[in-house]
């Protein structure tokens, strides 16, 4: 048990070290997200009175796209010198390797999201009334994206057209996350919906728990098939 935790930490630390040293992902993801926010601003801000209506949607579209861009980059490193297998051939449970990669993606995307969401809140003049719900939905939603995205980007590491395949495969599965996330975000900026943010947050938590289990269990079997 503790061995697994140590190995988890080692993989996570290794990825963090590589990212800090190369800063590739930081630049691509950050730049992409910020540009997206600008595009949305120009596309929607001709009617600034209704930002509460489309603001939450923009948050989630940006989050989903940056998470996906980050996914592809994540496994580029492992593909380079066959390194994913260097870990899988070690006496480490495959699930531990997967968990470390997914966690790395999660932490990274959340850090990026902090910046882009702050930008969106400023540009679109959103008033965040329920900070807990706002932040909670982003964290839980990103977790779902990290779990599903990491599983498939590992599998598609060597596939043709993986940049297209990855969204094609993950978006249908992640639609519930986007629906739930937008609901909670909208409620937290004061949209007059007759909804229960708590219920939607529990929905997201349930999604993360079920898919957390499913992805960890499937990863080993799928990568070795």
């Amino acid at each position: 048990m503790t061995a697994g935790l140590r190995q988890f930490g080692a993989v996570l630390a290794k990825d963090a070290r590589i990212e800090f040293r190369t800063r590739d992902i930081v630049y691509t993801m950050a730049l992409f997200s910020i540009l997206l926010v600008f595009v949305f601003a120009f596309a929607f801000l001709s009617d600034p009175s209704r930002t509460r209506d489309y603001g939450p949607g923009i948050v989630w579209v940006t989050l989903l796209f940056s998470a996906t861009v980050g996914q592809n980059r994540l496994f580029d490193r492992e593909r380079e010198n066959g390194c994913l297998w260097s870990m899988l051939l070690a006496p480490v449970p495959a699930g531990v390797v997967f968990a470390a990669k997914a966690t790395g993606h999660f932490l990274f995307t959340v850090a990026m999201a902090a910046v882009t969401v702050a930008l969106i809140v400023v540009f679109f003049d959103l008033r965040v009334l329920d900070v807990g719900g706002f932040v909670g939905s982003l964290l839980l939603g990103t977790a779902g994206m990290s779990l599903v995205g990491t599983l498939f980007s590992a599998m598609l590491m060597n596939a043709r057209m993986k940049e297209v395949l990855l969204p094609l495969v993950t978006f249908p599965v992640l639609v519930p996350v986007v629906i739930a996330g937008v609901k909670v975000t909208a409620l937290s900026v004061g949209a007059p919906l007759q909804e229960d943010a708590g219920a939607w947050l529990r929905f997201l938590l349930g999604f993360d728990m079920i898919f957390g289990a499913v992805t960890v269990l499937l990863f080993g079997r799928m990568i070795r098939s």
Partner: peptide
């Protein structure tokens, strides 16, 4: 099976931990 962006020492340390 070496991580190109880590040093040799860091690679060895990582695999030792693994």
């Amino acid at each position: 099976f070496l991580y190109p962006d880590l040093t040799a020492r860091e690679n060895l340390a990582f695999f030792a931990s693994l």
